[in-house]
Amino acid sequence: MEETTKCELVLHINGEQRTVITRQAETLLFVLRDELGLTGTKPGCLNGDCGACTVLVNGTPIKSCMMLAIETVGKEITTIEGLRDTPIQHAFVRHFAFQCGYCTPGFIMNIHALIEQHPNADQSTIQEWLQSNICRCTSYQEIEAAVKEALQAKKTDIQPSHNRISRV
């Protein structure tokens, strides 16, 4: 059995293949941020409690502070940098669903997966999923409105307008 605790990992992130040399004990969060410069994924507690570090692993939301990078070899990782022009990003902007923006990547990743997996999510499903993230700035009411609009957009398949309107 191999002794060294550093290793080379080939990761699939946002559709790209990235190779890193890292500690086997390193969490995905630190590899993303420190090794790969993907700082959109935020540390908030390193303890699984806040959801700021949420990324998708094979489409499932995962708190990247509680998963080893080495566990994700062979899986598709999506971070906030990998999302462009999704319904939930547009809805967040339109509904003022963030203020300081620190919790936002985590929320968006979680909600994006929710919409993909449960396009017909009802109130209790929305609640079950979103309880995993803490926002300290908003009242959650704005986030709730954004989620509902994005679900609607997904359902009716209306493409969000791509120009970035600055007025509501």
Partner: peptide, 19 residues
């Protein structure tokens, strides 16, 4: 008097915003 969207909004929903 208008609900102008915050200037850094798109940075914040795309992970570009830096702290």
């Amino acid at each position: 008097g208008k609900s102008i969207i915050r200037k850094e909004a798109w940075d914040k929903v795309t992970g570009r915003a830096k702290y």
